[in-house]
């Protein structure tokens, strides 16, 4: 278990989401929303999650991901493997 915090994972996800989908509204990036509600398509979502895992050095087994997760759940899944 590394010392990664929720905030670090959340911020990294948000930064990558804004990189991949620049037109995304930063204010709308909230824990209870899903990436697709924010306008990210399936390719964008895979890209955001992959970039975040690479950057944080986290490997989450594929079966732990599921479509429709909100951002808080994505953070939880990543923290579990940090």
């Amino acid at each position: 278990m590394s010392d990664l915090t929720r905030t670090q994972v959340f911020d990294t996800l948000r930064r990558n989401a804004l990189d991949v989908v620049p037109e995304l509204d930063p204010a709308a990036f909230a824990a209870e929303r899903t990436l697709s509600e924010l306008g990210c398509n399936s390719i964008d979502r895979a890209e955001i999650v992959t970039l975040t895992m690479e950057e944080l050095g986290i490997v989450v087994p594929v079966h732990e991901f599921q479509q429709g997760y909100d951002i808080a759940t994505l953070v939880d899944v990543m923290l579990k493997h940090a």
Binding site: R45, V49, V62, Q66
Partner: peptide, 27 residues
């Protein structure tokens, strides 16, 4: 490796989890 990203569990039914499938493809 084993995962369930898309499958055809019956002769007239396809199921898929788009996010899991894309991540599995990339991995």
């Amino acid at each position: 490796f084993e995962t369930l990203d898309s499958a055809r569990p019956a002769p007239d039914l396809d199921i898929a989890d788009v996010d899991r499938s894309l991540l599995a493809y990339l991995e």
